[in-house]
Amino acid sequence: MSSAEDDLYQQIVMEHKRAPRNFGHLAHPTHQAQGTNPSCGDKIAVELELDGEHIRNIAFNGQACAICMASSSMMTEAVKGRDVPLARQLQGHFRAVLTGEVEPEDVEIGKLVALSAVRRYPSRIKCALLGWHALMHAIAGQGGTASTETSHSGA
């Protein structure tokens, strides 16, 4: 990994924190879920417009740290207009990178690679995955609140 990839707060991460993409609410969401991280107070809500297995639109809102906001923003860009199976696969790859199960260069995660340095900070992994947990709960139609406290490998 280059020194730029080692930097937790890369320029792209800070850009997504300052100006998060798809931040706000959808007029008519078909699915939604909230994510909370009780250990740090991060709260993210994800709203989707699903058309069958296609993510027609996505938005998120809430208050969270820079890593959580940037990851959620980057997540919305990565899955908007894509199919649900691809979103699930991307979430699995991203999670595997952050938890150290695979190296960032061994899977295709696109711009999300900018967050791969999070894996060196175990307490921040939950921050980077919170929006993704909420997304997966929304897709599953479970709604409610997803908590990072119940997830595997400390993430």
Rank of each mutant, 00 (worst) to 15 (best):
D106R: 15
G110I: 12
F60I: 11
G144E: 06
H137S: 14
V46Q: 02
Q142Y: 06
V113T: 14
L98M: 12
G62Q: 01
I58E: 00
I109K: 07
A33F: 08
G141H: 03
G144N: 07
G110D: 06
R88N: 11
L115W: 03
T36F: 04
M69Q: 12
A128N: 04
L112D: 01
T76Y: 04
C40Q: 02
L98H: 01
I58C: 00
A19M: 12
T150R: 10
Y9H: 05
S147K: 05
G141V: 13
L115T: 06
R124T: 07
A138P: 08
A33V: 09
V107N: 07
E47V: 06
C68N: 01
D42T: 09
S39D: 08
L8A: 07
D106C: 08
D106A: 15
S123Y: 05
K17L: 11
G154Q: 08
P38G: 02
D6I: 00
T99R: 09
I125W: 02
H54D: 08
R95I: 01
Y121M: 14
A78P: 02
G144T: 09
M14C: 08
A66Y: 03
N57C: 05
Y9E: 11
A134G: 01
K43N: 13
T145F: 12
D106E: 13
M1W: 11
I55R: 03
